[in-house]
Computed example of a mutant assay.
Amino acid sequence: MKNIQQTSLITMTINKVDFQLQEEHNFDWLKQLGSVFCVFDQQDSGNISFGVEKDNQRYFVKYAGAKPIEFNGNPKEAIKRLKEAVPVYQMLEHPNLIRLLNHFPTENGYALFFQWAEGECLHSHWTFGGPAKYTNPKSPFYRFKKLELEKRLKALDAIFSFHTYIESKNYVAVDFYDGSILYDFNNDETTICDIDFYRKSPSINDIGENFWGANRSKSPEEYKIGSPIDSITNVFNFGAIAFGLLGGEMDRSFSMWAANQGLYQVALRAVEDERSKRYSTVNDFYDAWKSV
């Protein structure tokens, strides 16, 4: 089916930057925002994103309303989801989060306008898909895993401190995975770039096994409809992220772990299948992590 779809793709060009969609779409509204220098057109969420530059300032534009090549849903649903993300970015504004500057409707969709955050996505599947993510020396994930331990621990600290903050605001992270992390290799700074699906806590799994998230960092309850999605769920997510950035990802053996035994035990408790065995809050998990 995908091959049939691929043959009917159309290529569009804005400011000499090419990208593909399933059908034509009007992007004239982009001109007022600046000159496009890059496009992210392979997301399955229904969004397409642009890097734009104006007056020597860079910005990031996330847009719903078109039909990106990896999207098989209804653009109206994508528009609805993107609109619902606006108050989430506003409520959870934080130094470690990409900053929302503006949002507005267009003729056929909706756009979120962010300050540009320097960095490379640790799950850049559009450039380093499949095994290349782990084996290509140019892959951001590969390069991150080669960083000295202190720099990787600093990145995790940025992730954990932000999520302790959102917990204090009674929010729960949904669809947080390594694709939500931007790492600036020049300045060793970490930015969280995608919180579109974060929800008020507590919440429940209203989708089932296809609940938002990556299999490598999802908790057992994120596969089961009606299960709670809360701080205990997030504890698992961040334990799994720690294994991804410091260890063997799905292989959670100590031999694959780059840090000390104490941090390993904290991460291991976080990813217990049984919810009652995990830390009860992200704050408790982060406190245990810092104490080691």
Rank of each mutant, 00 (worst) to 15 (best):
G119D: 08
C121T: 15
C121L: 14
L122Y: 06
H123S: 11
H125T: 10
W126Y: 08
G129M: 07
G130I: 13
A132W: 03
K133W: 04
K133M: 15
T135K: 14
K138P: 00
S139H: 08
Y142C: 11
R143K: 15
R143L: 04
R143E: 00
K145C: 09
K145G: 07
K145I: 09
R152W: 06
L153F: 02
K154W: 05
L156N: 03
D157R: 03
I159A: 00
F162H: 06
H163V: 00
T164E: 14
I166D: 00
E167K: 03
Y171M: 12
V172Y: 01
V172C: 11
D175Q: 05
D175G: 11
F176A: 03
Y177C: 12
D178A: 14
D178L: 15
G179W: 05
S180K: 09
L182D: 02
Y183L: 12
D184F: 11
N187G: 11
D188T: 01
T190E: 04
C193D: 07
D196V: 10
F197L: 15
Y198H: 10
R199E: 14
K200N: 14
K200V: 12
S203M: 07
F211V: 03
G213H: 06
N215I: 03
S217I: 08
K218H: 02
S219H: 06
S219F: 04
P220E: 07
E221W: 10
E221K: 04
E221N: 06
I225Y: 01
S227A: 15
I232L: 07
N234A: 09
N234I: 03
F236H: 15
F236E: 08
F238A: 04
A242L: 11
F243I: 09
G244P: 01
